[in-house]
Each structure stands twice: as C-alpha cells, then as structure tokens.
Design a protein around this nucleic acid. Structure first.
Lengths: 228, 228
DNA sequence: TGAATTTCTTAAGAATTTCTTAAGCGGTTA
DNA sequence: TAACCGCTTAAGAAATTCTTAAGAAATTCA
C-alpha cells in the first residue's frame, strides 16, 4: 500500500513516514498540494495524509482538485486544532480528518481503518475507472478512449481535457478553469492554447467537428461535454 | 515442496527448518522481508513462514509487496502473542496466522493443511502461474516466456518488467511506477534505465520492435502491455 | 581469477506533442 | 448593418519524450 504524506513541515513528514513504514506501508512525500498532485499523476497512491496549511497549494484546494479530477486515493486531512473548524462543515471530499499533533497510534489506526475499505484479500478493490456519455467512453486505467467502440488516440493534454469534461459531463468549464485543472497552474494564459486542443480533440472524437455531438461550446462561457 | 522460513532470529529459523526437513520439505531461509522477496524471485517457493517483526522489511510489508506483485506462494505469518492484534483486522493477504512460540506439531499440521491445496492437482485451488495476452505467455513457475509458442530468454530485470506489465495487461504504468515495482526502491531515477530495458524486451518479444504488438508506449504517460 | 553476461549511463537524433501566431468565421449587440 | 468579441482553424516553431546504440560498470558463472 502506498501512502503519500504531504506537509510543509519536513520533520512531521519524516516522523509520520517512519511510523507508517514500520507498519509496512510504502511512503511517498510531498511538501505542498502541487507536489502532491504531481506524485499522484506518476505513482499509484492509495491514501494521502495531507496538512491543510501549506504554501503554494493548501490541502483544501488540493483535495478539491484531486476530487474534481476524479482521482481515487483516500484523503485524510490534518490541521492544528485551532484550524480544525476550517475543515469541519466544509464538504470538500476528504475521507477523514484529524487534528495535530496526533498520537501515532491513532494515526495508524485511522489509516488502517481507511485502507480496510480497499482491501479484499490483499488485492485492491477494483473501482470503476470508466467514464461514459453516449458513445464516448474513457477508460482511465488503460488510458484508452473509444467512440462507438472504436479506439481513438489522444495525446496526454488532450486526454486530460476530455477526461475532465467527460467525468463531469454536463458541467461547463471556462477556458481558464480548464487551463488550471489540466496544467495545475494557478495562472492562466490569454493565448488560445486550450482552444487549439479542443479543436484537436474534436477532430478525433467527433464525426463532424463543425457540428460537435459531444464537445460543445457555450458561447462566452466555456466548453462542456454533453451528458447523454 | 519448498518452504521459505523467514525470521530475524536465526535459532527459530533453524529450529523450524529442522522440523520441516524431517517432514520431507526443502527449506530456504531468509532473515528479513527483503531477503525473502529475493529468494522468491530466484526459487520456486510454495509456502513462506514469516515473522511479522523483522529489521529492514517486516513481514507485513513483505506480504503486501509479494501480493501486490501477484506472487503466488502461500504465506503464513507468525507473531508474538502481544503483537498478534497487529495482523488481526488487517487483511493483507496472508493465508494463515499463528502466534509464537508455536508447538512444532501444530506448525507442521498447519503447513500440511495449507500445502494440501497445491497437492490436489487439478482442483480449482491450484493457483494459476500463467499470464497470457495474445500470443505472449509468461509462466511464473518455470520463469519461461513464450511468444507464439516459441521460448524467449529474458534477463531477470527484463523478466520482472514484462511480468509486471503482462500480469496487469491493459493498465498503463509510468516509468517511475515501473522502477518502484521492479527495483523495490521508493526512489525514482531520472535516467532512462527503464527505457533501455523496454528496448531490450521489445527486441526479444516483438516481431518488429519498431511497431510493437505487445509492449506499447503511451506517450507522456508510460508503458503497457496490450490486453489481447 | 577471468570470461561472459547483465545492468546502467550517456548522448545523439527521431518522433511526437505542445505552444504560438495569425487569419478567418460566426454570433452578438448597438 | 457594422463593429466587436470570441471561437475555429491551419501551419510551423519550440519543447518534450522516446528510441537506439555503444561502451562502462557491476555482477554472475565457470
């Protein structure tokens, strides 16, 4: 089981890491939300323990990003007790919360409790990684996209954009929003980078790109994938 | 039948070894989880008796690694009674548990009971050691790889990479993920070690390495073996 | 120990993807 | 209808990622 520990305080990260390694988990580390998201992209992470107060990208924002992109790991947020109310009542999609400083035994108990959901005889419970709308289907495990059963090859950026829109089919995303969610840069560029990618995606998934069936524009608002 | 006994206490290992050798089993020994994983890689082990408390890599972590990599031996975990609750409740994929110190007769009885699965040939309990996709077949027991019935020789690293990808055919693994799963190092190297091995594997299993049928690249994402 | 094999590093260049630019088109509004 | 703004489209430059070969380093085997 792979656990990502994310905190800007390196000592805390190391300490938690040691406790959990002793329990047999493999530990990955990150110092802020951005790094966390990067780790998730390249590693199979089963659970994240993340502080809410961090530079660059805090744990709350990171959690929302991860959830919005429909990434699957379990997320446990941690906060100093005085910041605890920040996460209470705020439904951001975390699986558990705990206050710092925490008792190592409690931490381990909670981690195990969370991971128990996943484990069925040692193997990972197979969550579905498939998003579908109409004849468009995205398999997030094999990274294969099919339109009416026919496989279509998308580049990584194209894939991420279409995945975002399809996983949230029906919802409109502004160009800036798409940029942020895909590039993980809080900045937004005024160029038409996104538009070009949209074009390319349409070229590949639409029968007639001029009259898109799936990837629609909402004039002056953004793009969406039709919920069918 | 080959049994691996894994405990950091050499006396215990030797004692168990003698009991089991008297029963006609062949004994392999290891002092910690890392050594155990190494033995499994190089020998055909049918059953492992492993302590949970060990230096370097404990039995819980070792069990999870072994299971995560789809290795097949039966695993019996042992623990001092005061550590017993560590393994209870945690469903990590072991086949049996027992507390130390154990009664030799009970140990032997349990070992026989576990191994009975293996000996009843043809029964549904015989675990498959074969991964297949299209004409590519990996027999994990004999470590023989065949392409369209023709045997192919791979080096250990090449074998492990191809086995990982084939056992999870269809799933894409990033280069970092492959590195971690094969080298068992949470580190990640920026060199193209993995890429070179991929090349060599293709050279051996593909008819035309330039247009691989099995081992495909997913640009900017990683590699996978096609599920056929 | 020496030879053979395996693994890792390096680096050049091939292939692919991504971004920028710019021109054209369509919808919207005054 | 004209002018504007936002979307579409194409083409090429820039950046990134992968492939491949060759040799050094490490390991294994006889």
């Amino acid at each position: 089981m792979n656990i990502l520990v994310c905190d800007d305080d390196k000592e805390i990260v190391d300490a938690i890491g040691i406790y959990l390694e002793n329990e047999g988990y493999t530990i990955f580390k990150a110092a802020n939300g951005l790094e966390a998201i990067e780790r998730i992209a390249n590693h199979q992470i089963h659970l994240i323990i993340m502080d809410i107060m961090m530079p660059k990208m805090d744990g709350i924002r990171a959690t929302m990003k991860i959830r919005e992109e429909n990434n699957i790991p379990l997320i446990m947020l941690s906060a100093k007790s005085e910041d605890y109310d920040k996460i209470l009542g705020l439904n951001i999609g975390a699986d558990d919360y705990m206050t710092k400083p925490f008792n190592p035994l409690e931490l381990i108990a909670r981690v195990k409790s969370q991971l128990r959901r996943y484990t069925t005889l040692g193997s990972l419970e197979t969550k579905s990684h498939v998003y579908r709308t109409g004849g468009l289907e995205i398999d997030d495990e094999s990274k294969i996209i099919t339109v009416d059963g026919e496989a279509v090859h998308l580049t990584p950026v194209q894939y991420k954009i279409l995945r975002l829109l399809t996983a949230n089919a029906g919802r409109v995303f502004s160009i800036e929003e798409i940029y942020e969610k895909v590039w993980h840069e809080p900045s937004f560029n005024p160029e038409n980078t996104v538009a070009v990618h949209i074009r390319k995606i349409r070229e590949k998934i639409e029968i007639n790109p001029k009259e898109p069936k799936y990837l629609k524009v909402m004039w002056g608002v953004g793009y969406k994938v039709e919920k069918i």
